[in-house]
């Protein structure tokens, strides 16, 4: 069965008819063509699909699109503003927080959720916030350094 959902994605109001069983990750990638959020483990374990729903990080691969009706969704595509990278994007770039890049959109969205709640997080807070995000390249050291740098840049 299909239903009409109306939600805000990266600030823009979107209305679509979606199947009840459509996942948010498939809606974003296949319907809205926002391919930044990645399908990784496909079971809510790796965090590559992390997006913000009403400001809180959430794995889009285990979230139903229909359950997001009326909500505010933010993806990595919405982080750029007027052609400028966000503080986190810039910090990941400058501190080599990205290698293959597959986990990066999820990492940045998880970190974005953290910095909104806690603008100057401790290393422990950063590690906790990234607990649901796996990276197989960096060893996490430079990711944490990037988030620390972004937090400093926002002061």
């Amino acid at each position: 069965m299909k239903q009409i959902i109306a939600l805000r994605i990266n600030g823009a109001v979107c209305e679509d008819a979606v199947s009840d069983s459509l996942l948010l990750i498939d809606y974003l990638r296949e319907v809205r063509h926002l391919t930044g959020a990645k399908m990784g483990c496909d079971g809510g374990e790796c965090g590559a699909c992390t997006v913000l729903v009403d400001g809180h990080p959430r794995p889009a691969c285990i979230t139903l699109a229909a359950s997001c009706n009326g909500r505010e969704i933010e993806t990595i595509e919405g982080q750029v503003s007027n052609g400028r990278l966000s503080a986190l994007q810039r910090a990941f770039h400058e501190n080599l927080g990205t290698q293959c890049g597959y986990c990066t959109p999820g990492m940045i969205m998880a970190a974005e959720g953290l910095l909104r709640r806690s603008p100057t997080p401790s290393d422990r807070e950063i590690r906790t916030a990234l607990g649901g995000n796996l990276c197989r390249c960096t060893g996490y050291v430079k990711i944490i350094k990037s988030i620390r740098a972004a937090a400093g840049a926002q002061l």
Binding site: G44, H56, P57, P59, A110, T128, G132, N133
Partner: peptide
């Protein structure tokens, strides 16, 4: 329980 993203929902 799980990770921050799961605990949100």
């Amino acid at each position: 329980i799980a990770g921050p993203g799961h605990r949100s929902v």
